[in-house]
Design a binder for these strands. Structure first.
Lengths: 130, 130
DNA sequence: ATACATGCAAAACATTTGCATAAGA
DNA sequence: TCTTATGCAAATGTTTTGCATGTAT
């Protein structure tokens, strides 16, 4: 565990805003200016395998990472400001069970994202209309 | 609407196995051997914008497309054979409502994937152990 | 004629890899 | 010393784009 790898992990576990590799790289460079992007990618790949961070991959945009709650859980993604927030909802277990029962799958993982407009961006819309 | 664009749409709407662009390209080439990959990409981009097909994007693998049920719905993805199947489950609306209530989001879209082992692959595992 | 679709090649972008160097146990 | 991490550059794979050509209304 080298200093910059510790710094990478620290950024990931302390960020609640699901940073991309590029964002992690920028933050780590503040304390370790010599750090290269490849090193961040390598560290993230390892952390992902060890399940210390959760990867949220998207089509044609950079993956974002959750080191704060590194287990599968539903996310809310704002389509206006791109903010991603964690959720904790009870019904997800019921849903998993319903699927397992209905289709005979042994569920081992999940990826549940809801896209919407966050309260702040709804407010902004009101401002414009006023 | 040119012949190969019609062929692309036909492949996408008639496939239930969520093909990738590459797979669509291979299928379309059977009837239109001159077709280029770029043309398939361009057609898919258009169809996606018109919401005639649904894109399922992943981290570091090709997007797969659903032209058979081109509206957001939960998918079951087998981690053994990579098969993707459509689901229709009742609880999803409850979940959406719970999130909207709890976090104040106006939900506009969803991406719900459950990863698991399909019944066929569970069977294969049994075969090996027997 | 005019607009749009096509096909090829090149570009763009995120991510991974090879390899020589550097550092830590 | 020996293993592993680093940093740079090059390679990879997917998707997009520019542009000249072709096709259809």
């Amino acid at each position: 565990m080298t200093p910059q790898r510790a710094a990478i992990l620290k950024v990931l576990t302390e960020s609640h805003d699901h940073p991309s590799v590029e964002q992690v790289y920028e933050l780590v460079k503040r304390t370790f200016p010599m750090t290269s992007l490849a090193t961040v990618y390598k560290a993230v790949t390892l952390l992902k395998e060890e399940k210390e961070i959760l990867e949220l991959g998207f089509a044609n945009e950079s993956s974002r990472y959750d080191g704060y709650k590194p287990y599968p859980h539903p996310h809310l993604i704002c389509v206006k400001c791109q903010k991603i927030i964690d959720t904790e909802i009870g019904l997800i277990n019921n849903l998993t069970q319903e699927l397992a029962d209905q289709y005979g799958y042994q569920i081992v993982n999940q990826r549940v994202d809801f896209y919407g407009i966050c309260p702040q961006c709804q407010q902004k819309k009101d401002d414009v209309l006023r």
